[in-house]
Amino acid sequence: MRMDKKIRMKARKVEFFYGTTQILHGIDLDIFENNVTAIIGPSGCGKSTFIRLLNRMHELVPSARLKGEITLDGKSITSADVDPVEIRRKVGMVFQKPNPFPKSIFENVAYGLEVNGVKDRHFIEDRVVSSLKKAALWQEVEKRLHDSALSLSGGQQQRLCIARCLAIEPEVILFDEPCASLDPISTHKVEELILELKKDYTIVIVTHNMQQAARVSDHTGFFYMGKLVEFGRTEDMFTRPREKRTEDYITGRFG
């Protein structure tokens, strides 16, 4: 028997708009500690939009407007008096396309520490090494830490982005279709890494690949046309979905 774990993040009655267009309708969703929560759904269903709300990256679009509330450990992260910078340090993000900075591998991982005021070089060096190890990239880059990050392969770049995110020790990590632009072998490595990371972190992953959701996640939410159609344990959802639309989607009848 498995114990249900503590809830880290909660979304309550979340409505989201770009200008006057409503993208998300009344989303209620819980994210459990040391779990992988997958968000699936056809393209345009609002899943990527939703995950960006969790660390307030949606604010980059000026016309974006949010109603409802999202909390982290019971405290609101969406109210106006909360600094988004503070939230983003606790809730890290890995993007769809690997986006290392055009700097060296070392500088990429050190960046987050430096902007967060860490000055101690030894501390930074240790943290860079440990983050690269956690991201299973250390052996491949050990001898070329000062090469440009852009010289790495796509899969390595994505693991570098994960290492970069780990370096600031976030509590929650958001993955926005992290394998969308990777080959199968790199995808496999990233998936293994996610399973490893969930021991220490709380993870949310958006994916359009249902097998991936089934392989890595503990909970799954199915989004369709801006609504959360169904949310539950992954094994339940893939074996006996409650909703007809969920079943249609995971059996490949549309999407």
Binding site: D83, V85, V115, N116, G117
Partner: peptide, 8 residues
């Protein structure tokens, strides 16, 4: 505190 310095 650090956040405040950053903001300034």
């Amino acid at each position: 505190m650090k956040i405040k310095v950053k903001r300034i």
